[in-house]
Write a protein that binds this DNA or RNA. Sequence first.
DNA 1: TCTGGGGTCCTAGGACCC
DNA 2: TCTGGGGTCCTAGGACCC
Length: 424
Amino acid sequence: MTHALIDGNCFYGSCERVFRPSLKGKPIVVLSNNDGCAVARSDEAKALGIKMGAPWFEIKHLAQSQGLIALSSNYTLYGDMSDRMMQIIGRFSPDQEIYSIDESFISLKGFDLDLTAYGRTIKETVLKEIGIPTCVGIGKTKTLAKLANHFAKKQPAWNGVCNLTSLTRYEIASLMKQTPVNEIWGIGRQLHKKLNDQGIKTVFELAKLDPVTAHKNFNILMANMIYELRGIERISLETTPVPKQEIMSSRSFGNPITSLTLLENVLSELTARACQRLRKQNSCITKCMIFIGTSPYRSCPQYRNNLMISVNAPTNSTDTITGLALKGLRRIFKNNFQYSKAGILFVDIISAEPVQGSLFDDEIQDRRSMELMAVVDHINCAHGKNTIRLASAGNHMSPDWFMKQERKTQEYTTNWNELLIARA
DNA sequence: TCTGGGGTCCTAGGACCC
DNA sequence: TCTGGGGTCCTAGGACCC
């Protein structure tokens, strides 16, 4: 097997730069919701020492002193740019896995050509067609492709394309000896510490470990990582999207909420969003969890609670689920707290196809509800989200309304009113 | 003043069964 | 004083990813 991993460099920042070329060459960061912390950094911003996830209030001073530019996140824009990028990449292989908003694996199995040159062509095509710079990593397994991508990004000599399959064993070993073990896909903070305690500091040292012992000392994931580093495939390419086993819709609020009514509005809309995603993958739920909480970062009285709710018969109806969610909310809501977060989590997701009705279920009602939801989704898709919603979601009340987004750019590609128009 | 939102997989331990 | 062995299912929590 041979895989390539293509990922967008500073993807969110690059999307912004496509529409505002003046941002090129400047230190920019894209902030999370509520303008909370940096979730994307340009090379220039990294050079200023800004870490991933750095809170904005801690790096704000760099705007004055170093010309750092911060933008609120514009997920509609990034989602659309991602779709376009993935489509372009998909032309280069019959098998593609879209791993995240900015990363895609493709299979290069059986490709009898110069893979390094092929990687370069992919990179150049994406740049030419949508203006997003990427890096390409090629390896025998997904883990090796990830590692190659890391080299392509970190070491300028590769020019953005690193093909491990073109190197000798000794060359690969030498690269692995220079690479700290935590650069591996799947080694986070805790595992890094544990491995370090055992004297395993480099990728090379990890690859040398006995997978069976590693399974005992850690878990199966660690064993798989070692096999993958040795070129033995353990993680396969997922070319067809698998239905989600969990769906979460939650928000933190820039300005805390104290009133039950407002919290009901928020939860109602979050539930509607989650239900829409549920129907999109043609699933139902039998259980869900709602949660609310104050901010642990504020020095106000703290309260956090959640409630697991069971549904009578499997459903994906916004109407039914919202009713249950709001009823649950009233049970866990307490007065006199400053709520900073709310959300709903769907667990126990099952296919919508052969729904087993409960004894007490009115089947006709259920079918009508499904039809109603299909119409709602259709209208919201054609005329913009939130065109139709439940009355409990309130009038023009959206969770995003409570979000701080002071630096957001326009939806250049998905909103007629915000298209970029060249002036003569 | 100010710290995101969305996921996955694995393991341990409890409840329950025979 | 003594308290099986084996199995399943479920849940909570930890670790990781982007």
